[in-house]
């Protein structure tokens, strides 16, 4: 199956439409669970409450597919999710205890480092979002059977000589393989980002925004 067919892009607004696939919606929410949790944590909630609130937020999102003050028909998924989350938290903040609702979402393991970052909640959200996008693209590469040992070479910071000697291949062959891998990674990255913007032309701008976010 050609790569283009395997990885067809589905815009997030279509996933959120009333007739969108529940599995696709679940996948999309699972992918961005961590940035959402990191934002809640950075807002000052303790870990247990942050987990509960994140689960509750996605539970409600999956249930209703919409929030009163966020319009899923246009804009970026990142902006939509953050807007919806802020709206949700403002409503939930006054409650003594968040109710536990999960909606069958997969619970993603948490990186404890997010709470210690000296960043604003919005910056934490954007940075974790960028990492989630990379993670999704890398996972797609792995699922497509791309060689794991070439992954560290994606950004060209490693020496080819040692791996070439270890694998008994020429450096030239290794460079060609890495070049192809970069091209596939680029396709995956753009696909993942394209799913979160309403206009394909925004992909470059969104990636540049994420570069700034992850460099903060």
């Amino acid at each position: 199956m050609p790569a283009a067919a395997r990885f067809q892009t589905t815009n997030w607004s279509l996933v959120f439409a009333a007739d969108g696939s529940p599995d696709a919606l679940n996948d999309l929410c699972t992918r961005y669970w961590h940035p959402t949790y990191a934002y809640v944590l950075r807002c000052g909630f303790d870990r247990a409450d942050a987990e509960d609130l994140t689960q509750a937020f996605f539970g409600r999102l999956l249930e209703h597919r919409d929030f009163a003050q966020a319009d899923p028909r246009r804009g970026k998924f990142r902006s939509f999710l953050l807007g919806a989350l802020k709206h949700f938290l403002s409503n939930e903040r006054d409650r003594a205890k968040a109710q536990k609702r999960g909606g069958g979402l997969e619970h993603v393991p948490v990186d404890d480092g997010v709470a210690e970052d000296a960043l604003t909640p919005d910056q934490v959200f954007d940075k974790q979002w960028a990492l989630a996008v990379i993670d999704a693209a890398m996972r797609a590469l792995r699922e497509a059977g791309e060689p794991e040992h070439l992954m560290p070479f994606l950004t060209g910071e490693q020496s080819y000589a040692a791996l070439a000697a270890e694998r008994d291949v020429s450096e030239g062959a290794l460079r060609v393989a890495v070049h192809r891998l970069r091209r596939r990674f680029r396709e995956q990255l753009r696909r993942v980002v394209a799913e979160t913007v309403d206009d394909g032309a925004d992909v470059d701008g969104e990636i540049r925004f994420l570069i700034d976010a992850v460099s903060a």
């Binding site: 480092g113 960028a130 990492l131 890398m138 992954m151 910071e157 680029r186 990636i207 570069i211 992850v214």
Partner: peptide
């Protein structure tokens, strides 16, 4: 900062553009 499979996240994203 953090690395993704040994790669710098900003550089990985730059591959996309």
């Amino acid at each position: 900062g953090s690395r993704v499979s040994g790669n710098c996240p900003a550089c990985l994203l730059a591959l996309g553009v």
